[in-house]
Write a protein that binds this DNA or RNA. Structure first.
Length: 111
DNA sequence: TCCATGACAGGGT
DNA sequence: AACCCTGCCATGG
């Protein structure tokens, strides 16, 4: 039973599994990890994801589909750019059709 | 070494 | 229906 692995590492694992052209939310990841109340910590993990390179942080947004973390990228437009490059429509920091491209780890990965 | 702050979300009043 | 309030980990000053 290795349920006590580093929470951050687990978050990174899930984020890396997000399919191209899809996005998910901090809360969804937290829930998947069985720590819905730690949705915040997921955000902290993303903030620390600067040390890692294989973390598609641009595919993680808040529950409104808003690019809350775009200012943490190399450039303010980097996040939106990366998303649009995957066919995701972004308007005014808001992901369009968020409900349709939303990727739920619970349904796809099945814990 | 200690305090404060930082990519969120859901429940209660 | 809207606003307030807590939960939680890591890093920097």
């Amino acid at each position: 039973m290795k349920e006590k692995n580093d929470f951050f590492d687990k978050v990174y694992q899930v984020v890396r599994l997000i399919p191209k052209g899809r996005v998910t939310s901090y809360g969804a990841i937290a829930k998947y990890l069985g720590a819905a109340k730690s949705s915040r910590v997921v955000g902290y993990a993303m903030n620390a994801s600067h040390s890692m390179e294989d973390i598609p942080a641009h595919r993680v947004v808040n529950r409104n589909g808003l690019l809350t973390g775009k200012m943490h990228f190399e450039t303010p437009d980097a996040m939106q750019n990366a998303l649009e490059a995957e066919g995701i429509q972004v308007k005014d920091d808001q992901i369009q059709d968020f409900d349709k491209i939303f990727w739920n780890p619970m349904e796809d990965l099945e814990i």
